[in-house]
Design a protein around this nucleic acid. Structure first.
Lengths: 332, 332
DNA sequence: TTGAAAGCGCTAACAG
DNA sequence: CTGTTAGCGCTTTCAA
């Protein structure tokens, strides 16, 4: 391994001068700088990030903790966060929190997360984690639909406005019996409850509320579950002419499930989703959906962590992403 | 910040004993261990990974470099690699290599990649990177369809066998004019050329080869490009009754493009893809496809890097993933 | 503009 | 079973 010491010797300068060159710190004569750069090239020197971090206390890395990277929403988000961070000179480390803990000693369990200068934490990943992180006074930005009671900077989706717009759009298209295909959570504040409530509100505003509500529940937020829910809906004989799916992933399953039962979209049932995943435009029929501005969210989240790295005690804020309603074949 | 020193003082032992407890190193009395764990809890101590790494020379981290995490194939792979690595006591750092370099000094450009104990490198990401990495004698496993001339451990997809099986399956279904929708690369060894060649070979074997071949080219490997290619195919009046799409992503676009022109799948044209992305089963019609064993690939890649970490000079090997042919509605 | 000294928090090696 | 010693490679601080 080539160290700074080696480079210094090779260039006939001190370690410190090499460090200054490597970090573009100025105050180094042009001639000396050239000699040092040459020595770096020759020796194949590379900084040891651990040593730098140990000494400086800064990693230059923002952690992004998501429950699964496998999910289109999270991988897309990761991509955007990486861009936003790079623009501010930060690197992003993606951490998957979904899996069970390894056999590490308790004290070490989340130490990796705390290695970073700041953390963008997707809310689903939060359970059993928050106390340790909160107490640390560590720069954290929360992402997701839960309620954090103002304890953190928080960036969320346009849940209420988006679902209201979607439901309203179905009504505008002439739907009178509008159902919702929604996930497992029954209580608390989260994606499912927030969007379900917004759906009910939208129906009430339009005088379309059904009793009992046309809720087609899911046990998981997957395509498979969406398909099964569509089957159950059709088989139970409910006469629904419009459907709101809480996410596009579920909508894809619902689309398939309706096809399985011979129902046509939009002719028999209109369907709208939430997220605007890349496939949405390419499905047959193409999927109408609420398109939150993911780039805006990534940008905001990074901006907030970086700010907080420099001003740890700044008051926290709540931020909701803007959205577009993408009207496509599935509701026309 | 709480250090080991602090914990040691609190527990009335030496730093070393704390270190032993933290690393489950045994040779510590039960009583002392309890005292130390208690002190750790009380003080909220967390290991400083940088210090540990600096001293030990090991990070316990495997890097996974992919061009984009946004692409379903890569995010799925990442997920599987994380699992495989965890089973061996390693952590995975995902690095996106797609974007242009930042303004870092030359010597630093890829230093982050070399911080890890080993690296799984997706081939697309390789350009301009390989020399530096090769010369380092650093544990690397290549992933992807390019030709590395045996310089690295290499895990690849079943390109030839998979595409041959897919093309053969179309022929078995009665297709006689089988086309291929394929990507931009015209030369070299890569996904596109390998799969195109396998398609031609399969046709020749069956006596179905057309001249000129029914190649519908793409400028990019996206859904959008697949859709456009389908449009061009139909508009050009080619009478095709079977289509191989080099990837499922492209197949999704093709499916849509055919629908745009009023062609039905499989009645008018049969279509088969490659990858078995999660959506494949849920499309309407559901998509037949070559399903490489991604889990096998992840497992193999991790196994190989880990081996190489411990035996850097072991001879390299070539490994091709097994696959299944998933026959669904699009070819029935 | 350059350099010397000190030490970040941890662990390997050895001593007790 | 526990403690001591000696750095890992870098940057901060201060002096030249």
């Amino acid at each position: 391994m080539v160290t700074m010491e080696d480079v210094a010797r090779l260039a006939g300068v001190s370690k410190m001068t090499v460090s200054n060159v490597v970090n573009n710190r100025g105050g180094v004569g042009d001639l000396v700088r050239q000699r040092v750069l040459e020595a770096i090239r020759e020796s194949g020197y590379r900084v040891n990030v651990s040593a730098r971090t140990l000494k400086s206390g800064r990693t230059g890395v923002i952690g992004l903790a998501v429950p699964e990277i496998d999910l289109p929403y999270f991988s897309h988000l990761a991509d955007l966060v990486i861009d936003a961070a790079a623009r501010r000179g930060y690197h992003v480390a993606i951490e998957r929190t979904g899996a069970a803990e390894t056999g590490e000693a308790d004290a070490l369990a989340h130490s990796r997360l705390l290695q970073f200068d700041g953390l963008i934490l997707s809310a689903v990943a939060l359970d059993g984690l928050d106390e340790r992180l909160t107490e640390a006074g560590y720069p954290i930005v929360m992402l997701g639909e839960r309620d954090f009671g103002g304890r953190f900077d928080h960036v969320s989706m346009p849940n209420e406005a988006g679902i209201k717009a979607a439901t309203g759009h179905l009504a505008d298209q002439g739907c009178r019996r509008i159902g919702i295909v929604s996930g497992p959570a029954r209580e608390g504040v989260n994606v499912v409850t927030r969007r379900y409530r917004a759906y009910l509100d939208a129906l009430t505003e339009r005088g379309l509320a059904a009793d009992p509500p046309l809720l087609f529940p899911l046990d998981r937020m997957t395509m498979e579950a969406g398909r099964a829910a569509a089957h159950r809906m059709v088989d139970s004989g409910h006469e629904v002419d419009g459907l709101v799916a809480v996410t596009d992933t579920i909508a894809i399953g619902v689309l398939r499930g309706l096809a399985d039962r011979g129902l046509r979209v939009p002719d028999d049932v209109r369907l709208i989703g939430f997220d605007d995943v890349p496939e949405a435009r390419f499905l047959v029929p193409s999927l109408s959906t609420v398109a939150p501005d993911h780039r805006w969210m990534a940008e905001k989240a990074v901006e907030l962590v970086v700010q907080r790295v420099h001003a740890p005690s700044r008051p926290t804020g709540e931020y909701v992403a803007p959205f577009d309603l993408m009207i496509r074949e599935s509701t026309r």
